[in-house]
Amino acid sequence: MMDSLPHLPLGDRVDTGIRWIKDNLSVVLDSIKDSLEFLVEGLSDWLLTLPSLIVVILFAVLAAGIRSLRFAVFALLGMGLIVSMELWEPAMQTLAMVIIATLIAVIIAIPIGVLAARNNTVSAVVRPVLDFMQTMPALVYLVPVVIFFSIGYAPGVVATIVFSMAPGVRLTELGIRQVDKETVEAGEAFGGTPWQILRGIQLPLGLPTIMAGVNQVIMLALSMAVMAGFVGADGLGKIVVESLARVNVSLGFEAGLAIVILAIFLDRSTAAIGQPTGRSLSALVRRRRKAAQRAAAEQKDSQAVPAA
């Protein structure tokens, strides 16, 4: 007979902790729930205020401004297809949820990434936490948030924030650490403070990588926003869940196609934001290096004059 290890009731301990938070911090949880629902519902109502065709044209103009005319044509046709499938309202609800969750996730992720880039201890502590967040199955996040926030937008937004935040932290840290050390040293030689170096050198030069992290946050947020349909959040995710329950292939295909269109639009839009900075990166680095070389040459000349 094989010996068995004693059972460790980790799940029971986690359940006890969640119940304690629910019982003792109900006021805080209710405030968070009300705030998130107010933000998502307010943004979705604002997106639905104008006629859908007007908003489609505005999206196309935005696409032309930040990327290209070809992308504007895609936005016009894609968003028009969503309108024609009569999925405009749930699409805007999903878009509002993704925008709010992404903004909150980025506001949290970028400062943590900056701290991790500037402090190895913070990086060592944050890394396993991010590994845990990224490998935990998405549906598992929905269990505790439903206990905390019941059903609706709030549990979906909170689960989306937790699920999508990790790449924002990782790529922010990577972007800061990849900045050329000579450029940073040149800033320090000119008497720049750590905040000035971060704001004027590291963040601008690391922006393409940081924006890649924001892009990944948006993609994960959109995928998790679909999962939020399981906890009663309105939007395309709820329609996907309904089509699954009713085995309605046509409804599920149309909702999935609308999600794909939103995903492509958000992906290409955020990717385009980092491109101008990426193109000017090498020029900015060269300017920084030339400035450092001029400063070193002037200092050498000033030291050579007394010697003569």
Rank of each mutant, 00 (worst) to 15 (best):
A101K: 10
T102Y: 10
T102G: 09
T102A: 12
T102S: 15
L103P: 09
L103D: 05
I104Q: 05
I104K: 05
I104M: 08
I104F: 10
I104N: 00
I104T: 04
I104Y: 08
A105D: 09
A105I: 02
A105M: 03
V106G: 05
V106F: 00
I107E: 05
I107Q: 01
I108P: 05
I108A: 07
I108N: 04
A109K: 03
I110Q: 10
I110Y: 03
P111W: 02
P111E: 07
I112P: 05
I112K: 04
G113P: 03
G113T: 06
G113Y: 12
G113Q: 06
V114P: 07
V114C: 09
V114Q: 01
L115K: 11
L115G: 08
A116D: 06
A116S: 12
A116I: 08
A116Y: 11
A117Y: 10
A117F: 10
A117T: 04
A117K: 02
A117H: 10
R118V: 02
N119F: 05
N119K: 04
N120R: 15
N120A: 15
N120G: 15
N120I: 12
T121L: 14
T121H: 13
T121C: 09
V122W: 08
S123N: 14
S123R: 15
S123L: 03
S123I: 00
S123P: 02
S123E: 15
A124E: 12
V125Q: 00
V125Y: 03
V125I: 14
V125C: 01
V126K: 02
V126F: 02
V126C: 02
V126T: 10
R127E: 13
V129H: 04
V129K: 00
V129Q: 08
L130D: 00
L130M: 13
D131M: 11
D131K: 00
F132T: 14
F132G: 11
M133P: 01
M133D: 02
M133E: 08
Q134V: 04
Q134S: 11
Q134Y: 12
T135V: 10
T135D: 08
T135H: 09
T135M: 11
M136D: 09
M136R: 00
M136I: 14
M136F: 01
M136A: 08
M136G: 04
A138Y: 02
A138S: 14
A138I: 11
L139R: 07
L139T: 12
V140A: 14
V140Q: 00
Y141V: 09
Y141C: 10
L142E: 13
V143W: 00
P144W: 05
V145A: 04
V145I: 14
V146D: 01
V146A: 10
V146G: 06
I147L: 15
I147E: 11
I147D: 03
F148G: 01
F149G: 08
S150E: 13
S150K: 15
S150F: 07
